[in-house]
């Protein structure tokens, strides 16, 4: 499926870009995106955690993506 990743903080450094377009048959859910990222960019596994958001909401791993969804890659937050 075709999706767009948007990354912030250290995730942007790992992806070397704030926006990455993906077209991967094995990606159907947010969990699939996490697996893809861990495999393609092993530095994600060194993070304390990382979450994904779609439509400005955190999503669990079983969230079904739609074609052309924008998936936000959220490394550990550190506001305040």
């Amino acid at each position: 499926m075709k999706i767009r990743l948007r990354a912030f903080g250290i995730a942007k450094d790992i992806l070397k870009s704030g926006v990455v377009e993906l077209d991967e048959d094995q990606i159907q859910t947010t969990g699939d995106v996490k697996s893809y990222l861990s495999k393609a960019y092993p530095e994600f596994d060194d993070l304390l955690t990382f979450s994904l958001a779609v439509r400005d909401e955190y999503q669990e791993d079983d969230y079904m993506l739609a074609e052309n969804d924008e998936v936000i890659v959220i490394p550990p937050v550190s506001g305040g």
Binding site: G9, I10, L48, A53, P75, P76, V77, S78, G79, G80
Partner: peptide
């Protein structure tokens, strides 16, 4: 809340709490 801070030191910089 999705906000991130980077600390800038004399000899480098670090995203806080990332690791």
């Amino acid at each position: 809340v999705p906000i991130w801070k980077k600390e800038i030191f004399e000899d480098g910089e670090v995203w806080v709490a990332a690791h």
